[in-house]
Design a protein around this nucleic acid. Sequence first.
DNA 1: TGCTGGTTTGTACCGGTAGTACAACATAGG
DNA 2: CCTATGTTGTACTACCGGTACAAACCAGCA
Lengths: 209, 209
Amino acid sequence: MRKLPAKLASQLYGAAELIAERGLDGTKIDDIAEATGIPKATIYYHLDGKNGVLEFLLSDLLDLISSEVGVAVSTAEDARTRLEAAVAAQLGVMVEHPFLCRALVGDLGRATRLPELAVALHTAFYEPIQQLLAEGVADGSLRQVADPSAVAMSVFGAITVAGLSAAVDAPSADPAADAARFSAAVCELVLDGLATSRSRDDHELGERS
Amino acid sequence: MRKLPAKLASQLYGAAELIAERGLDGTKIDDIAEATGIPKATIYYHLDGKNGVLEFLLSDLLDLISSEVGVAVSTAEDARTRLEAAVAAQLGVMVEHPFLCRALVGDLGRATRLPELAVALHTAFYEPIQQLLAEGVADGSLRQVADPSAVAMSVFGAITVAGLSAAVDAPSADPAADAARFSAAVCELVLDGLATSRSRDDHELGERS
DNA sequence: TGCTGGTTTGTACCGGTAGTACAACATAGG
DNA sequence: CCTATGTTGTACTACCGGTACAAACCAGCA
């Protein structure tokens, strides 16, 4: 069941938009067959039904993300800089594959119930961030926080939801520019925060009227 | 079809865990009937099928969130303080209803395809944050950012994913404490950011070896 | 007490769709 | 030309969501 021929693989991507739009359950196998040009019998020969289709599409996406993030992270820079690179990498891939992202999120429940995808999700999205945060504390480029795993989860959310909103919005003419814009916004938030120095002082002193 | 009796409503919540666990599509109508004790025919008398069940459960949750956040936001404090209150409120509700949250996220695609839920989602989660960010710039308690809507989206993601992870983890003995913990982590991130002042300087000057 | 409207429920049924079975066919490599 | 592996059409099964409907139930009320 593994190792389906390259030609079929590429055809299968034709189903991504369909699934993104209607959800996997709103998409009939026959629709997928028609949209991809692969006859139903052939799909079943290689893949394990509808879930198999989703699993194939998404594990591909997830692998892509984690490898791109992987190279972004493995430089000699400090952790803070590498975090910025990781954010840019992840958003880059997401913006470039809007349909797959939407399919992923729309059928998140199903995806997390497919064991292979669940771990791929974790390693693609969460692990690198958590790792980076820890390294940042070690090399002094990022702040020590009270609850590292909760913060890592939040950072993960900040990045992913931003990427998702980019994927849902009208697919723009220039994906790279979009990715850069969002990546700047996310980094601005995650690194510097939103408080003004004034409000920061107020809070440290306890506010008075 | 609106206005189903209070008794049935409370029984219906018995289906939340089921749906959270298996997803709506992995849950048969007959399972729901059995779990809630409401016979299938009665469900169909009041509700519009499976989607109706989901819609009922989630619109309730969403209303709750937006009203709680609503009161948290309508104080005389500065926007920064109100943002903290809003985060706490949202996380409080989420932690208190883990099954509903999981159901929501697991069937996000379906939820967003139900028009009523889509707008409820938007008003419950995104709008108050976006609003608050704008007000914070106005009253000087929050920083002006380059791309406010992208940042608002990120903040929304940071909060929501944190809440979700709390909902997925083993439901703890003390939900209120959990909520407080996560809310502190999220605020720490969103307000102050992760950069150390050292790394901030490095970046402003351009780093040198 | 009986009438009337809404609700509740059991049961039987229909239609659509995922998945399977299988046989015919294609293709390639030896 | 033969065999192994892939490809495809067709027919079929099983299951499940949703509907139909009739019988019962349960007010309130004249």
